[in-house]
Design a protein around this nucleic acid. Sequence first.
DNA 1: TTTAGTTTGCGTTAATTATACGCAAATGTA
DNA 2: TACATTTGCGTATAATTAACGCAAACTAAA
Lengths: 252, 252
Amino acid sequence: MLVHLITKLALFLYICLIGFLNMEKLQNIRIAVDAIVFGYKSSGLCVLLIEQQFGSSEKYWALPGGLVKDEESLNDAVIRELHEETNVQLTFMEQLYTFGDDIHRDSRNRVISVAYYALVDASNLEIKADTDAERVQWFKIDEIPPLAFDHNLILEKGIERLKAKLTYEPIGFDLLPEEFLFSDLENLYCTLLEKEIDRRNFRKKILSYGILEETEKFSPIKTGRPAKLFKFNKLKYNELIKKGFHFEIKFA
Amino acid sequence: MLVHLITKLALFLYICLIGFLNMEKLQNIRIAVDAIVFGYKSSGLCVLLIEQQFGSSEKYWALPGGLVKDEESLNDAVIRELHEETNVQLTFMEQLYTFGDDIHRDSRNRVISVAYYALVDASNLEIKADTDAERVQWFKIDEIPPLAFDHNLILEKGIERLKAKLTYEPIGFDLLPEEFLFSDLENLYCTLLEKEIDRRNFRKKILSYGILEETEKFSPIKTGRPAKLFKFNKLKYNELIKKGFHFEIKFA
DNA sequence: TTTAGTTTGCGTTAATTATACGCAAATGTA
DNA sequence: TACATTTGCGTATAATTAACGCAAACTAAA
């Protein structure tokens, strides 16, 4: 305990010294990362939230995230926070936006948050059991509770971006299992983009791109004509991209 | 002088206190903003750079920018820095990306930079005269010198984004004077996207969108058939967007 | 065994959009 | 007056998208 206090004091003095030497440069702004983890279930698009304790009684659901460490890249910070708070296996991650215009987005201190969004195959996923009395849970996108800080705003922007990106990059596959049915893919696009779509034209278009691979397997579903399972061929896609290929799915 | 020192000391103690209270949360990371200001001249796409002095002799060209103040939004920080260092009149500005994965992008301290990109009508623009012995200058995009920090990287990402955005949002107009010739617009797209384009089909397409307004004026150019001057009708564009309109310019 | 219900997989045709040009009009200049 | 130049409008053809028909392959119920 005493050693801890001394260490703390030493660190304190060190920081004071640094602060003094860089007086005019010293900022009192913290920097955090937050992550939107999207998963797709048959019930629709979902987001991973964690329950945070504020003070003694206030509890809020929030996006997983936290302060960036001094010697850690932003990317590593997101990965670390996600690993600490959940145990999801990401299939895609990208920076979303940096939220720093609302000075009081965190009422305690000025915190600027670099938000990321990530995708996982949620169809077969155990999320981490409660740790530190924190709960982790999937929420359907249309049943989001009021979140901590400006996380509702961040989430909104994330959903917008995900929808946009779905139409011009093949990231829908990152929300599905490695092997999937055409009807899964079709449902994913219909549900997420909230648009009607002709099943046959959709199939024709995707197949014409030549980025899917047929497997020998068939779906385990016991109704209707048995359906082939497909895989996304990322290598083939990357080759095509080099030749100037441009993925696009759009609806009326 | 004494007053200044006392103020400084008081602020110092205050910061120490805050630091002590938030001991385990205190970071030693600075946060900055940088701006890419694009301008279009007949010679091509240009970027505004400022010359910075490092130490006693080292000089580097760099993107305008600097540290964010404690009580200032990110947006305001960019505007302030641009106003301090140049006097350009922005027609468009948007957040680009936050650079914080390379811990040593600034060799002195850990600095995370939130980069913005902006457009100006450079056709008729005086940039600020030398202040603080700093020089401000337009650089053609293919004649960029080695820049300070990771600014070459930031700029590259900015150019990529600008090119992409040009094809799906009508931001090309923000690089032109309020009234412009069709041939100006055509040249802008050809030059920036480095693509051939059929003049007549391009005109037909843009006109079909109904987002341009004819003026009564004609170009002052003294060769060939006199050409009408056009204006971009932003109100009309916003109306169309609400109805589901989607701007797009693409080439083979 | 048959029949009804369901979903898949492959076509065909009409409508729309993009591409490739042709050419006269309106100017300045030789 | 002839010529070079750039604008502005048009038309024919190719390519792509949208709309829909229908048989195949299965399950479950009759």
